[in-house]
Computed example of a mutant assay.
Amino acid sequence: MTQLDDSKKLVLILEDEVLIGINLQDELQDAGYRIAGPFATCASALEWLQTSTPDAAILDAALKDGTCREISLELRKRAVPFVIYSGYGEDRELLAEFHQVPWIEKPVPLSVLVQACQQLLISPY
């Protein structure tokens, strides 16, 4: 059995597009991160958050069961930095209370998200 390296930072991925989630997971693991998820729904991420806390998170703004608002509030309460990754500019209005959070519009190369995650861990907003 392989033992997990707990010294690596843990990044939560909330993304309902399976291929995007898997590709992002691969990119972040290649960059040296441990991954929680990818979670396709807010409900599944909230369930995971009942017993765990990530070091950072990448959140799709709109999921099958609603916006990432509830996850964002929980992460903010725990002082976990996160970036919102969305293909819809109008989602900014739905999540206006998170205007200080870095926002990355889809599509972008996944390396942009890896860099954003690295920046969050160095100097959170």
Rank of each mutant, 00 (worst) to 15 (best):
M1H: 06
M1R: 10
T2V: 11
T2R: 08
S7P: 04
S7E: 07
L10K: 14
L12K: 08
L12F: 03
I13N: 01
I13G: 00
L14E: 06
L14K: 06
V18Q: 07
I20Y: 08
N23F: 04
N23T: 11
Q25P: 05
D26M: 09
D26S: 06
D26P: 00
L28I: 01
Q29I: 09
G32N: 13
Y33K: 05
R34T: 07
I35Q: 03
A36W: 06
P38E: 04
P38V: 10
A40P: 00
T41D: 06
T41M: 07
T41I: 07
C42D: 01
A43N: 12
A43V: 10
A43L: 13
A43T: 14
S44C: 00
E47L: 12
Q50W: 00
T51Y: 09
S52T: 14
T53K: 14
P54A: 02
A56H: 03
I58P: 00
D60Q: 11
D60N: 10
L63C: 12
L63E: 06
D65N: 09
G66R: 07
E70A: 14
E70T: 15
I71T: 04
S72T: 10
S72I: 04
L75R: 02
R76N: 07
R78D: 01
A79H: 09
V80E: 00
P81S: 00
P81E: 01
F82I: 04
V83P: 02
I84T: 07
S86P: 05
E90Y: 15
R92M: 05
R92Y: 14
E93S: 15
L94F: 13
L94V: 08
L95P: 06
L95D: 11
L95M: 10
E97M: 12
H99V: 13
H99D: 13
P102E: 10
W103F: 15
P107I: 13
P109M: 14
L110W: 07
L110F: 14
S111G: 12
L113Y: 04
A116Q: 11
C117S: 02
Q119T: 15
I122E: 14
S123G: 10
